[in-house]
Design a protein around this nucleic acid. Sequence first.
DNA 1: ATATTTATTGCTACCGGTAGCAAACGTGCA
DNA 2: TGCACGTTTGCTACCGGTAGCAATAAATAT
Lengths: 330, 330
Amino acid sequence: MKRATAQNVAIEAGVSKWTVIRAFTPGASITEASKAKVLEAAERLNYRPNLLARSLATNSTHQVAVLVDDFANPHKLPFLEKLTASLQAEGLVTMLININEHYSHVHAILNADQRQVDAIVLFGTAFHDEMLTDHKLGRGGPPMFVLARDSQIEGVPAISCDAVVAIAEIGKYLLEKGYRRPGFMAGAVHCLRRLAGGGTLRSFGEPLSGSNSSRCLPSAIAQESGAQAARDYLSKIAPEDRIDVLMCENDALAFGAMDVARSEFGLRVPNDLAIVGFDNAAPAASPAYGLTTYEQPTDQMVKATIDMILERAPRETVNFQGKLVVRGSA
Amino acid sequence: MKRATAQNVAIEAGVSKWTVIRAFTPGASITEASKAKVLEAAERLNYRPNLLARSLATNSTHQVAVLVDDFANPHKLPFLEKLTASLQAEGLVTMLININEHYSHVHAILNADQRQVDAIVLFGTAFHDEMLTDHKLGRGGPPMFVLARDSQIEGVPAISCDAVVAIAEIGKYLLEKGYRRPGFMAGAVHCLRRLAGGGTLRSFGEPLSGSNSSRCLPSAIAQESGAQAARDYLSKIAPEDRIDVLMCENDALAFGAMDVARSEFGLRVPNDLAIVGFDNAAPAASPAYGLTTYEQPTDQMVKATIDMILERAPRETVNFQGKLVVRGSA
DNA sequence: ATATTTATTGCTACCGGTAGCAAACGTGCA
DNA sequence: TGCACGTTTGCTACCGGTAGCAATAAATAT
């Protein structure tokens, strides 16, 4: 059975299709009598307005594309929950696009654009292709935003946690605690880093002043990668030459590293090796890990993103301050 | 700058808009010459077809709504990753809808329906409201599927992991290991349970034959709830009266319970209390937990779901067999 | 009772495509 | 040169709504 249209309801109710539409348009000019008549007919035919047609006519879909490329980070899930819930509260719906080796950013953006989404959110994902950004989407394309990562792209605001402040705060804390030989573990997805490489280490080195220089362990983003990177490092470097604290770009890496350090190398955390994460993912709070980490102000970030999408706030890069969550690991 | 339409390109290229459309329709009847002419003009104007208009005309959006209500379960994330990736590989895009106290199933289904999605997948979510299912969506609505949970609803096929087999297998294993006093912890979201209440306990009780009866600890789904439920139970029941193995409806509950048992009650797992989860979520593999759990065949389930959506397979409930993953916790 | 204002209803045109028929075009063959 | 045939192009009608003007009905003023 084909679905009923406004026209069908109109015939059923003995009015014109525009009257039917009005019955479904809040605040439209229509008498109570005909509205009731229409609603009754609509009920009989089980009519529900076609939002596709409306979107076409009004040039607004109330859909927001959210691109994610790192499903390995457990932190993504609660963040995604907040984001979707908040979007829905504003009448927006989420188009979730998984960026991977078979489905590139360009692919995703082009697709979202053709589907006429109201905005595109690069969630924890950034990319370079200026050619696309500037040219293809310059002309009437949807606005783009980068969430939870910094943006290198002109005209694409970023909504993120202030990495410099975060690093400084973590560094200060570690320094006070007496750590002097820090190491940094970064995820290696897509050439960009949330806590951008050099800058990070320098900021961290600074509070530690003349201390030993930092070491960087590259890896892909994921718990298993964190484990592997830690394994490589610990088996290669003699105990006396090792770092005394490991900062990880995200908690997933930290969990992997901690697992390996404890169970494969018998190291005590934090005594033999302290570990700091970033995100305050759920398992960090569990006594099994007790990870000292840094919590992003996700509520603020989500709110800011939506405000920009709805043009309730200027569309420009903003940085929020997170907070250090001290637990047993450092 | 407004986006270019086929009509604009047509004028630019000196042809009719239908020729423009044909240039963008694979296999359409058009000469190489005019196709090149059109593509060049399209490039100049930065034309990209409007999929909204196409969807309206073809009556197919290539969008699939995925409803999720339990973001607290870490298992959802990799599952969601697979689902989105597989959908995208088939040219389908995911509309992710977050079901919560502010946004009900009915709300979500109605919205998805009005957006003309090609299918609705209740992912790990089930609901009763037959009134809606039968009446409202009976008439030309999108097909619905329940993924990773069983379906009570007539005409809504479920794609899930065979719970009876799973429970039997777990029970058999635990029996062999000598456990005799099992307890079961179920999530209490929305009245439905994946391993439906009574049946579960009976299946589990059966292999344990004449042994002590099972205990059920109700709670909401989430790690914190698991912790709370375990805390309540352990502080209330004397050590000698306690269960010897706790089966949890999902890993998140198991993690919470294990944390509490170990760190708050000093119990050794599995010696003092064995714990079994369900899902094989990422942290289960980590030495920090080493959780014995049951892995759902997610690949098969996702594939089956998509086959049904695309009508490559009959739309009927299917059950796949998972496998027991034995680790240290039981 | 009639004129004037206002609320309600119906209308045309349009959003940007698709489907499928009809005309125009070229080509091969008689 | 003329005709049949297949290809290419253009056309009308349509998908299911929205916008905003015009006509009509109802309410108020004179």
